[in-house]
Design a protein around this nucleic acid. Structure first.
Lengths: 172, 172
DNA sequence: GTCATTTTGACAGCATGCTGACATAATGAC
DNA sequence: GTCATTATGTCAGCATGCTGTCAAAATGAC
């Protein structure tokens, strides 16, 4: 972790901001959802079906998680009365997750509070600041991804069917 | 998630970059540590004792995790031969974690590769870019933390002894 | 020296995310 | 209609992080 590059300590400059941001946002999400007895993960899954019932695999696709992960949360959410499973007329297996009225209300309140958070934080920055943050982060991600692609040893990952959300979340 | 603030969609501008950065960095860490048969968490714990043996609670303090989390990883690392427990002359209970030669070599290689990653990515940015990223992220964290402090309902969290690394990681 | 407090290690359990496997339903080629 | 492929749901297990709880060791007040 010693600063020995011409650019200064690139490692620190890159990693610490990302971790700090992520940790703070997770904490904010937990603060907002906790009073409604929902976890951030449950909120995300429930929020995905606000605009209409969806099967587990479609929810997973939309929020960028695996079917298996979403399935567990969805079952939990349904078990606690925030949503229900309804039959799918087109597919015998793919039951649809649909929020109950209670779930709909909770999500609505959370969405409002979360927007308040975003507005309050965002108000402290100029549009240019926010744009710069997005642009910089995007470039960093692209640069790291390019490095990973150039460095990887194995074959270039054949066209598997399932492995959608994989590499980006392998660590923690 | 609709853009209705004067600053544009603050929610998207704040959250997406943070998640993207975090996910990419975790993936990079996993890519670097995996060939050495270490996980990012093991690397972090082992790296903490490179400069000298430390007890679990001190490692936890340094890397910002709980004693319990570090303890599990440390036991795992020791069980796999990357480190050993040595008696602490000053404290009968607090055994010291000390890397084996094998562990020291693995960590050394990982540190080098990780610096290569940081240099490669950092080289694509000006010093001003990196400075701006750090500064912006720091301001965002400060702003969100201020919002949380102003919004929290319960009492201002009395001076508990243990609860060090808590809120910042409650979500995931 | 004794006793309350703090520190530390440890065990148990929860929350999330992942991957690996399987079985079954849906689809499409033939 | 049959059969290989794809999509899905589901079970099992791993990796990390957290909190809760205890017991023992270390410390400090007296």
């Amino acid at each position: 972790m010693s600063g020995r590059t011409p650019e200064g300590d690139a490692l620190t400059a890159l990693v610490l901001p990302a971790f700090a941001l992520n940790g703070e946002f997770l904490a904010a999400a937990a603060m907002i959802t906790a009073p409604h007895e929902l976890t951030p993960a449950q909120w995300q899954v429930l929020g995905a079906v606000l605009d209409g019932p969806l099967p587990v695999s479609e929810i997973a696709r939309r929020i960028g998680l695996t079917r298996q992960s979403v399935q567990r949360v969805a079952n939990d959410v349904a078990g606690r009365g925030w949503a229900e499973w309804s039959d799918n007329p087109r597919h015998r297996r793919a039951k649809l997750l649909v929020p109950t009225e209670r779930g709909r209300e909770a999500i609505g309140a959370i969405v409002v509070e979360q927007q308040e958070w975003a507005d309050a934080v965002g108000a402290r920055f100029t549009a240019e600041d926010l744009r710069a943050l997005t642009e910089l982060a995007g470039r960093v991600v692209a640069a790291s991804r390019a490095y990973r692609n150039a460095t990887r040893t194995g074959p270039p990952s054949g066209p598997g069917a399932d492995p959608g959300p994989a590499a980006a979340r392998s660590g923690a």
